[in-house]
Every structure is written in C-alpha cells, then in structure tokens.
C-alpha cells in the first residue's frame, strides 16, 4: 500500500513538473515582453532577461504619443464594433429564419454557408480588392467593415442556427397564439432566449476581427486608415532595433484583449470552442 502511495506521489510530482515547464513555455514569452516593455533598450542590450530595476512607465506614454497608436486604436474600434453589431443582427436574423421556418432550400442555404468555412481566403481576396477599387471602397474603413462582416458571417450563422434550433417549439406556439408578428417573435423570443449563444458569437467575432491581418493588409494602405495589427507592424518597422520601445508597443496591443479575457474568460473560451465540440 505504501509503495503504491509513494509511486502515486512521485507520478503527481513528475506530472506537475512537466506542467510547470509547459506553463513557462506558454506564458514565459509574455512575461518576457512585459518586463522588456518597462526597460530601456540600453538596459535590455546589457541583459535581455533581467527584471526591470526601475519601472519606466513613461515608455508607454512615449510609445502612444510618438506614433499613431491613437488612430490605429480608433480605426480598429470603429471597424470591429460596427462589424460585430451588423454581424449579430444579420447573423441572428438569418439563423432564426433557417432554424424556425421551413422553406424549400432551407438546408441547402445552411450547407452552402457552412461549407464556406473551409474556403481559403485567397479565393476571394483578389477579386474583393478589384471590386472595392471599382466601387471606391478600397482603402476605406467602410469597405473593410463590409468585408469583415462577410468573412465572419458563415461561422456566426452556423453557431446561432445550432442554438436557435434547440429552443423549445412551445415558446413559439404560445407566441403565435398571443398574436405576435414574425418580427416580434424574433425580437421578443429568439433574441432574449438565444442570448448565451449571441454573447458567444459577439466575443468570438470581436477577437477574430480585432486580430485580423490579411484582409487589412490587402485592403488598407493609407496610414490614417490602418487598424491595430497593421499599426503594430508599422511601429515595428519604424523603431528598427529599438527593442524596448517595440515591446512597449506590443504590450499596448495586447492589453485590450487581456482585459476582455479577464472579464469574460468563461464566455470567451466557450466562444472560441463553439462549433468544435460535438
């Protein structure tokens, strides 16, 4: 008995050690940039791995004022918030329709939307570029927003349809007896009851679009229209070898996501994993 107990204990210790190592690997890089973001480049060149001796918080102000971070943040916010709002409404309406009304081609529409999830972005990106140029939407935030709505729409509809289809039919029957219109049924039943799934897609879309790079790099060129990922890339190019300043810039870009994570971690994990669990 004692033998098995001690082997168990040994096993646990080994396991914990492996997990601690993995955690260093997974979280270490963050702590590294976090510490570098508070140190000057000359301190970093002396020793890249020391902890900050004096906390140079002024570097954050310098990074923010010495670049266009304000513009990048504002652009990202406008594009992402409007795209997520539109996605939520358009996506929920479509999902409601597909989950609740029977019409010929219902399943076909769902299948087509679902299969879009596997499309590589290249298949649309060149022609989107052409079309946006033709309609004078190239290099505008409106154009980027429209594209963002389109790229996240399939996943949004797919997740919401799955959830809406499981809402009990009784609720809808009762609403019909009470004389609700189709529109009222959508706003007063599907939307409130489906709120957990809607929150999930909102967070998922927010993170995906906040970090989106490929479409932005193709469709935006002007400095004043850059979103945050483009801005960070530009900032890195501008600062050249100024590692300390770049780390500060990176931290500024990471912080909003970490804040969202801190407040909504459960919802966020659900959102990121929705669709993959069966």
């Amino acid at each position: 008995m004692r033998d098995t107990l001690s082997t168990r204990f040994l096993g646990r210790t080994v396991l914990l050690a492996i997990l601690a190592l993995y955690t260093c690997y997974s979280a270490g890089p963050f702590l590294w940039i976090a510490s570098m973001s508070l140190r000057t480049t000359s301190e970093i060149s002396a020793n890249a791995y020391a902890l900050p001796e004096t906390l140079h918080w002024e570097k954050y102000i310098e990074a923010w004022t010495g670049s266009n971070y304000g513009t990048y943040f504002w652009n990202s916010t406008i594009v992402v918030v409007s795209a997520v709002l539109a996605l939520t409404i358009i996506g929920a309406m479509a999902a409601h329709c597909l989950a609740r009304y029977r019409f010929p081609g219902n399943r076909v529409v769902l299948f087509v939307i679902f299969s879009t999830l596997i499309f590589p972005p290249q298949i649309t990106i060149i022609s989107l570029f052409q079309s946006l140029v033709e309609y004078r939407l190239y290099d505008t935030l409106l154009g980027l927003t429209l594209v963002y709505i389109a790229i996240q729409l399939p996943l949004t509809v797919y997740i919401l349809e799955g959830f809406f289809a499981r809402i009990p039919q009784d609720l809808y029957d009762a609403a019909k007896v009470d004389g609700y219109s189709h529109w009222e049924i959508f706003w007063k039943i599907t939307m409130p009851v489906g709120m957990p799934a809607i929150a999930t897609t909102v967070i998922l879309n927010f993170i995906n679009l906040w970090n989106e790079f490929l479409y932005a790099v193709v469709l935006i060129t002007d400095e004043s229209n850059r979103t945050l990922p483009l801005g960070v890339q530009k900032f890195m190019g501008d600062q050249l070898e100024d590692i300390g300043m770049i780390s500060t810039g990176l931290m500024i870009a990471i912080v909003p996501v970490i804040v969202v994570y801190a407040f909504f971690s459960e919802k966020l994990i659900q959102g990121m994993t929705a669709g993959a669990v069966k």
Partner: peptide, 26 residues
Amino acid sequence: MIVFVTPALLMYAAFTAYPVIRTFWN
C-alpha cells in the same frame, strides 16, 4: 419571413459568392 435571411444572403452573394466566381473568371 424569408426577409429574415435576405440581408445575410445579399452579403454572401456580394462578398463571397461573386468574388469566388470572379476569381475563376480572372
């Protein structure tokens, strides 16, 4: 009630289906 799915289909047609076809044409 089909109206509900129309905005999504329009977005899909304009920003996904049409570009795919246009890429093949390209």
